[in-house]
Simulated scan of single mutants.
Amino acid sequence: GLEALMRWHHDGLGPVSPLEFIPIAEDTGLIVPMGAWMLEEVCGQAVRWAEELGIEPPPISVNLSPRQVAHAELVPTVARVLQDQGVPASWLALEITENVLISEAESPWNTLQALKKLGVTLMLDDFGTGYSSLSYLKRFPVDVLKIDRSFVDGVGSEGEDSAIVNAVVRMARALDLGVVAEGVETEAQVQALRQLGCERAQGFLFGRPGPAAQITPLLQGAEPDWLEPVPGRQPAPDA
Results as ranks from 00 to 15, higher is better:
65 S>Y: 07
76 P>W: 09
104 E>F: 00
209 P>W: 05
192 A>Q: 09
34 M>R: 06
208 R>D: 01
41 E>T: 13
59 P>M: 06
69 V>Q: 01
53 L>H: 12
210 G>E: 00
123 M>L: 14
202 Q>I: 09
61 S>I: 06
176 D>M: 07
213 A>L: 11
76 P>C: 07
216 T>F: 02
113 Q>Y: 03
223 E>Y: 10
135 S>C: 11
64 L>F: 04
81 V>Q: 05
216 T>V: 15
215 I>Y: 01
229 P>T: 05
196 L>T: 03
116 K>M: 01
98 E>W: 00
52 E>A: 13
28 T>Y: 14
45 Q>R: 11
188 A>F: 00
201 A>V: 07
186 T>K: 01
3 E>L: 08
150 S>K: 15
119 G>A: 06
135 S>H: 11
25 A>C: 13
83 Q>V: 09
23 P>G: 12
134 L>S: 05
21 F>E: 10
11 D>P: 12
75 V>E: 00
211 P>D: 07
48 R>D: 11
162 S>T: 15
197 G>N: 13
125 D>K: 03
157 S>W: 03
231 P>H: 11
147 I>M: 05
131 Y>R: 05
22 I>P: 01
106 E>Q: 14
144 V>C: 13
52 E>R: 14
125 D>W: 01
234 Q>A: 15
206 F>S: 02
48 R>S: 12
92 L>G: 06
57 P>G: 07
183 G>C: 13
80 R>A: 10
197 G>E: 12
196 L>A: 13
116 K>H: 14
19 L>K: 07
215 I>A: 03
110 N>K: 11
42 V>C: 03
170 R>I: 09
160 E>H: 15
50 A>H: 13
62 V>A: 05
63 N>F: 10
67 R>D: 08
65 S>E: 03
165 V>Q: 02
139 R>E: 12
37 W>L: 08
89 A>W: 03
88 P>V: 13
210 G>K: 00
71 H>T: 04
216 T>N: 02
232 G>C: 12
4 A>P: 02
147 I>N: 05
140 F>Y: 15
219 L>W: 00
222 A>W: 09
106 E>W: 01
84 D>P: 02
86 G>K: 13
40 E>V: 09
3 E>T: 08
183 G>A: 14
94 L>D: 02
57 P>D: 05
153 D>I: 15
138 K>E: 15
167 A>C: 09
175 L>M: 15
120 V>F: 10
54 G>I: 10
84 D>N: 10
223 E>D: 10
196 L>R: 00
107 S>Y: 04
61 S>G: 09
164 I>S: 04
96 I>Q: 08
147 I>F: 06
6 M>D: 00
193 L>M: 06
98 E>D: 11
190 V>K: 04
149 R>K: 15
134 L>Q: 05
69 V>A: 02
206 F>D: 01
176 D>H: 14
154 G>K: 14
139 R>W: 10
18 P>R: 08
73 E>N: 07
237 P>I: 10
202 Q>A: 07
206 F>L: 04
99 N>M: 02
162 S>P: 00
84 D>R: 14
163 A>L: 04
53 L>Q: 12
78 V>A: 02
82 L>Q: 08
179 V>I: 11
164 I>R: 04
135 S>Y: 08
10 H>V: 00
11 D>T: 09
61 S>Q: 05
74 L>E: 04
25 A>Y: 11
222 A>V: 07
172 A>S: 15
37 W>A: 08
56 E>T: 14
